[in-house]
């Protein structure tokens, strides 16, 4: 699906957040049930494990007009599948290296550990990311 950016007087970033089922999504759930407020700029996709998130997904997101991506996972040692989040760490840094070669700022991607009890942290992470990407401006890829 192509995400269209609606031209506005002020730029509103489009943020995509991948959240793992066992820690991060539960953390986001907690933020919701606790009625915490967070920016509407974020779209959340649940995956069973952060280890499922491939660099392909992130590149495709950028291609389709997403301005920033958050990959959130369990804290180190807490992964429901033992070592899924360690794979995420390695994938993330390999991907960062590739994004740099394509001229995409590494501030547009973020990897963070959010546990099921950290609703407030989830809200802070999203708010911070929206502000960071707002200062970076809309995503620009290589022209044809």
């Amino acid at each position: 699906m192509t995400v269209e950016i609606i031209e506005k007087a002020e730029f509103e970033p489009n943020i995509l957040m991948f959240a793992c089922n066992w820690c991060s999504y539960a953390g986001l759930d907690l933020a919701g049930t606790s009625r915490m407020k967070y920016p509407v700029n974020v779209t959340i996709i649940k995956t069973m494990c952060s280890g499922r998130i491939e660099p392909t997904f992130v590149m495709k997101a950028f291609k389709d007009g997403i301005d920033g991506v958050i990959i959130s996972m369990c804290h180190e040692g807490d992964c429901h599948y033992m070592d899924g989040n360690y794979k995420t760490i390695r994938r993330f840094h390999l991907m960062n290296n590739m994004l740099e070669s394509f001229g995409i700022s590494k501030d547009r991607v973020m990897m963070v550990g959010i546990s099921a009890s950290e609703g407030a942290k989830a809200v802070k992470v999203i708010t911070d990311m929206v502000e960071t990407v707002r200062t970076l401006g809309p995503i620009e890829l290589g022209a044809d």
Binding site: T56, E76, R90, L94, M95
Partner: peptide, 17 residues
């Protein structure tokens, strides 16, 4: 995209945490 797939695959075969 074979490049991103390779990054995925490569991340599974080393052990640094």
């Amino acid at each position: 995209d074979m490049g991103t797939k390779y990054a995925s695959a490569l991340a599974s075969i080393w052990e640094e945490t």
